[in-house]
């Protein structure tokens, strides 16, 4: 199970007079096994949503419930997160296998020797050879590191995966591979997912439903194709118009 229900989520940074409200009581729903895409530009508060759901930011108000049970801060196993920058989110001083086994030790009853096998299985799940377990993050390419980060998140056996701009640091061809991987994992594991990106085309491709975030407020939500096909809110329309399009066969380019 993995039904996420966010109600009235408000987040403030700073205190007193200098406090800034970055999320103004937003509501979001991710159905069990579904993918909600969250799209917004810099300053929209989309990363704050990710951090709040993962328990890294304490909300000023509102509730975040998974299957009806409030998410208990960062230590809640049920929610795992993959970060934007794979160069920064892996401990540079730990081998890949160690990083994964460490999580297995905390969250699974596996014996020490079984953990290595499980780590290899997880690496295989993200299409990485088992030898990668012995390497350090510094020896891996950006795409490989992001796969390791995904495998490590999966090691905790989450019900909900938060992916915050996980492809924005990657080249187009690498991004495609990571997006394909997410699709496969979702199909194989039935995970629910909150997929966050500034790129509407990427969000549409990955998600069932899309929510548009602007200046800390959700301005429009709907099924991915409907929202992109007939946007209602002017801001959504602006976002849709801003996505560069490739000429389709037979197109005549004006100007």
């Amino acid at each position: 199970m993995g039904t996420l229900e966010i109600r009235g989520l408000t987040v403030r940074y700073g205190r007193g007079r200098s406090a800034v409200t970055v999320l103004h009581g937003i509501d979001l729903d991710v159905p069990d096994g579904g993918v909600l895409g969250l799209v917004g530009e810099s300053g929209s508060g989309k990363s704050t949503v990710a951090r709040a759901v993962a328990g890294l930011v304490r909300p000023a108000a509102g509730s975040i419930r998974l299957d009806g049970v409030e998410v208990r801060g960062a230590a809640d196993r049920r929610v795992q997160m993959v970060f934007q920058d794979p160069y920064a989110s892996l401990n540079p001083r730990m081998a890949v296998g160690e990083s994964i086994e460490e999580v297995l030790a905390v969250h699974t009853p596996l014996a020490r020797r079984d953990r290595a096998a499980e780590a290899a299985r997880l690496l295989d799940l993200v299409r990485l050879p088992a030898q990668v377990a012995g390497r350090h993050p510094g020896d891996l390419s950006g795409g490989m590191r992001q796969r390791v980060a995904i495998a490590r998140a999966l090691a905790a056996r989450p019900e909900m995966l938060v992916a915050d701009e996980i492809t924005s640091a990657l080249d187009a061809s690498v991004q495609a591979a990571v997006l394909n991987l997410l699709r496969d994992i979702r199909r194989e594991l039935g995970l629910s997912m909150l997929f966050i990106s500034h790129n509407l085309a990427v969000v549409r491709y990955v998600s069932d439903d899309v929510a548009v975030l602007n200046l800390g407020r959700v301005v429009e939500t709907g099924p991915a194709d409907a929202l992109v096909g007939s946007p209602r809110h002017p801001y959504t329309r602006e976002l849709v118009d801003a996505v560069p399009r490739l000429p389709a066969p037979g197109d005549h380019l004006a100007g």
Partner: peptide, 10 residues
């Protein structure tokens, strides 16, 4: 981020 990741991973 790696410490944030460690927190989320429990």
């Amino acid at each position: 981020e790696y410490l944030a990741a460690a927190k989320v991973l429990g």
